[in-house]
């Protein structure tokens, strides 16, 4: 009985502590996150607005790719500073943008720009760049130091490899 009571007390304390550490962020934390992500957010919004303003298929690939590149840069910084939470957060975002943003723009371009089109050369260049950037996202060292101990980082790293694989497949020149 006393052991159970002790366990419950410890559990409640741990939960309260964990909540204080990782619950809904308070204003100070939000401000810190805003300062940290301001540049990335600005690039993402600008790229999103450029996407809204163009119907050119290659430009749409490029805008989507540049947005992903901004996240990749932020992820590289997070990996450098060995911050597992940030690596997980940014890795999830990048995987999503690869799979649900860049891949659809590559597919749309492939479907609408035939080889004889004057835009085809531009598309080839955009594909090469997308494949290269997908490669360098998977080349980031997400397994060093503190990151190695995190199962969540391992999961997100796997997720990123899969998403980058989709980008590379979509960027392969169609026969």
């Amino acid at each position: 009985m006393r052991r159970t009571l002790l366990f419950l007390v410890l559990f409640a304390c741990s939960a309260a502590w964990a909540g204080a550490q990782h619950g809904s962020p308070d204003a100070a934390k939000r401000l810190e996150m805003l300062a940290e992500n301001r540049t990335t957010i600005e690039i993402l919004l600008d790229r999103g607005l450029d996407l809204a303003g163009t119907s050119d298929y290659v430009e749409r690939v490029d805008e989507s790719r540049k947005a992903a590149d901004a996240l990749r840069q932020a992820l590289a910084d997070a990996a450098d500073t060995q911050d597992p939470d940030r690596v997980v957060e940014l890795g999830e975002h990048l995987s999503k943008l690869f799979s649900d943003g860049l891949v659809p723009t590559l597919n749309a371009a492939a479907k609408n720009i035939p080889e004889w089109s004057p835009s085809f050369d531009r598309l080839k260049a955009a594909r090469r760049q997308a494949a290269r950037e997908a490669d360098s996202a998977t080349a980031l060292d997400l397994h060093a130091g503190r990151l190695a101990a995190s199962g969540r980082v391992k999961d997100v790293s796997q997720q990123l490899v899969e998403a980058a694989g989709k980008v590379k497949a979509a960027a392969e020149p169609k026969k």
Binding site: R72, A76, R132, D135
Partner: peptide, 8 residues
């Protein structure tokens, strides 16, 4: 050197 690819 390893990360030159990510340099903008």
């Amino acid at each position: 050197l390893a990360g030159l690819e990510s340099f903008r």
